[in-house]
């Protein structure tokens, strides 16, 4: 049973929860988007600085459980240097793999919140580039 408890507060998750990577705001983000998990109230706002189609910097702000906040931190670290093209191919399972801890179905929503925000941003960039009218989501391209 002790193992089951320790598993959730795996060092990797706690590291990211207590000392998150790039938790804060960008001075002048290329794009930003926020979302929340309506069931538990976890919130994540993600801000990206793009150099062409490459993610130069990724920052987040949020509040919520260890899994949702660590997930945002892990994601920000993971995506810097990647291109929008690469992120388009990233799947939910890839995000869960990044978290390393096994999560039940209900907690996967926490672990995937930042990823969901990222996906919305990536799709919005696609639409922006192809000059299509944007979807009714709260995206603020600068």
């Amino acid at each position: 049973m002790a193992d089951r408890l320790d598993e959730l507060y795996d060092d990797y998750i706690l590291d990211h929860f207590e000392s998150p990577y790039h938790c804060g705001k960008l001075e002048c983000p290329s794009c930003a988007h926020a979302d929340k998990n309506p069931l538990c109230g976890d919130q994540i706002r993600l801000e990206l600085k793009l150099d062409g189609s490459t993610i130069e910097e990724a920052w987040f702000q949020g509040r919520g459980c260890a899994i949702s906040q660590a997930g945002a931190s892990i994601l920000c670290e993971h995506i810097e240097g990647k291109t929008l093209e690469e992120l388009r191919d990233m799947q939910g399972q890839d995000m869960l793999d990044l978290l390393k801890v096994p999560l039940t179905a209900s907690r996967q929503k926490c672990g995937l919140l930042a990823f969901k925000v990222l996906k919305t941003l990536v799709y919005a960039q696609d639409e922006h580039e192809s000059d299509l009218p944007s979807r009714p989501v709260s995206i603020h391209p600068r």
């Binding site: 089951r4 459980c65 949702s68």
Partner: peptide
Amino acid sequence: IHAHDLADLLDRQGVAIRAGH
């Protein structure tokens, strides 16, 4: 400890509670 994490840690001990709003 966030409520969601607390509920998860309790579940891992067999105690079923609810967390959220």
